[in-house]
Nucleic acid binder design. Structure first.
Length: 505
DNA sequence: CGACTTTGACCAGCGC
DNA sequence: GCGCTGGTCAAAGTCG
């Protein structure tokens, strides 16, 4: 009897176990389904983003052709009136860097050629203009983010041969891939410092090593890589370990991608743009320049690159070569270097307290508890998914990131004593993702590439070179759209609030 | 065998 | 003009 009872109890226990197992399986199934749904939603969202990007691209292309046509129709007049070439009104309206004539007044010794360069500054000339608040040497004049275009053109251009705005416009954002046309130029560079054990950071692009050299002041060899994603892509990167801390990998990007970025890198760009856009960049004149552009969606979306560029220029205005605790690759060079320091130890408000001194630098100086920046397969879609979900998990992404930006900006403008624990907390939260370093790195590549023209290739069909400066558009689209979890439609207007947030500084 | 890396040579820019 | 340095080239070597 007892034995029977015992058997019955056993059976009950077994049944209970089976039920619990079934329940567990059901829950697992449920979770899996939920995850699948999330992935599906995310996929849809990405599709929407892609569609939007394409749409924007087409829109910009159309606008560009319109401008080309307009310029072509005006060309005869311009050839008879060289003064127009020096300061083309339309360039001013389109130029992010020529809106201020005050700058030219400051350049007492500016020659005609220099003025021509100013006229050519256009989008990348942004930095030039905002650096106008200080005196610059001729060298410095080239050494900023705008130098990509302006200095290149200055060298490409034969002195005394002012180009009509059309040509100037065409050559803007010139791709470095146009080797035959380009002499060695001074370019904006972006340096990323990150703790990384791998020889190089995985940033979504393919790189081929083409050289290695021992640089002065650093026993660690510097490796030279070029982008091999597309044939003739001019983007280069230098990788070197920090002499003081071998675990820190210093990656310097320069050049312009002449191809669409891999999705992973593009996505990373979006992720990082969120951070990079949030610095103290906006100045009044900048806003005005932006305003002259903001009549089109292209202009709006250009804010991204604009903003970024401005960040760099703002930075360079205060600190050429910005924050470089390591020996600068080329002290004598007039490169404008933006440094993203991703190596800061976890801490404290003290970092934000530095914002006032190094707005750009500090705005990107978030903590990365994980020292591993190389994430195997991190740039697969899986990573993408992870990355986005990480953002999505946060409520109201826009307000979230804007809050961060705003806080960072507040910290920038506030005295060091007036610190923002909230901002710090948020900064820590958003950067707690171990993949973020790679995200920023990829963003940098993206930026370096996007900063000027993505399609620097010659458009033979028009018998002229099409050098468009539209890529920041794409990146900003991503920026403004990806973080949004609630809306499947990229909400471009988000660009403006963000820009405003920057402007608020 | 092709792609990639290594490494010495070469070139250009800069300072003196 | 010379030397130093960074950056790039290209031949040779390596790897899968």
């Amino acid at each position: 009897m007892l034995a029977f009872k015992g058997a019955a109890v056993k059976e009950e226990v077994c049944a209970a176990d089976e039920r619990s197992v079934e329940v567990g399986k059901e829950e697992q199934l449920k979770n899996t389904k939920t995850e699948m749904d999330e992935v599906r939603e995310e996929n849809d969202r990405l599709k929407t983003i892609l569609a939007h990007i394409i749409k924007e691209y087409q829109h910009l292309q159309k606008q560009y052709f319109d401008i080309v046509q307009q310029e072509q129709s005006k060309r005869p007049l311009e050839t008879t009136n060289p003064s127009d070439v020096e300061e083309p009104d339309e360039l001013v309206s389109l130029s992010l860097g020529t809106s201020s004539t005050g700058q030219k007044k400051e350049d007492v010794i500016s020659t005609k050629k220099e003025r021509e360069e100013d006229g050519k500054g256009l989008t990348l000339g942004l930095g030039c203009r905002f650096e106008g608040t200080r005196k610059r040497s001729p060298n410095e004049h080239e050494s900023n983010l705008c130098s990509n275009s302006s200095s290149e053109e200055a060298k490409e251009e034969e002195p005394g041969e002012p180009r009509p705005p059309t040509e100037i416009l065409m050559s803007l954002g010139t791709g470095d891939d146009e080797v035959p046309q380009q002499l060695p130029v001074k370019k904006a560079r972006v340096t990323v410092r990150a703790r990384c054990d791998a020889p190089t950071m995985i940033d979504g692009c393919q790189w081929r090593k083409y050289g290695q050299k021992i640089a002065k002041g650093n026993p660690c060899p510097r490796a030279y890589y070029r982008c091999t994603v597309a044939m003739g892509c001019p983007v280069r990167k230098q990788v070197q370990r920090c002499a003081e801390d071998m675990s820190i990998l210093i990656t310097t990007y320069q050049g312009t991608h002449n191809h669409p970025l891999p999705m992973s890198a593009t996505a990373a760009a979006a992720a990082a743009s969120m951070h990079l856009s949030g610095s103290s960049a906006s100045e009044q004149g900048m806003e005005e320049a932006i305003g002259s552009l903001s009549s089109s969606s292209a202009a709006i979306t250009s804010l991204s690159g604009l903003n970024f560029g401005l960040l760099g220029s703002t930075l360079s205005a205060r600190q050429q070569s910005s924050y470089l605790p390591i020996p600068s690759p080329s002290p004598a060079s007039s490169y404008s270097t933006i440094t993203l320091d991703l190596t800061a130890p976890p801490s404290s408000t003290s970092q934000l307290s530095q914002l006032g001194r190094f707005p750009w630098y500090s705005s990107t100086r978030f903590n990365f508890p994980s020292s591993e920046s190389t994430v195997p397969a991190s740039w697969s879609n899986g990573y993408l998914s992870h990355e986005f979900r990480a953002y999505h998990d946060r409520p109201s992404q826009d307000s979230f990131c804007q809050s961060i930006l705003q806080k960072a900006i507040d910290a920038t403008t506030a005295p060091a004593l007036n610190q923002h624990p909230l901002a710090d907390t948020i900064a820590k939260a958003i950067t707690s993702d171990p993949n973020f370093q790679s995200a920023v790195a990829a963003a940098v590549t993206s930026y370096v590439g996007d900063h000027r023209s993505r399609n620097g290739k010659e458009d033979v069909t028009h018998g002229m070179k099409l050098k468009r400066k539209i890529v920041p558009t794409v990146r900003f689209d991503l920026y403004s759209s990806i973080p949004n979890t609630n809306s499947s439609v990229p909400h471009l207007p988000a660009a403006m609030p963000i820009a405003n947030a920057c402007a608020s500084s």
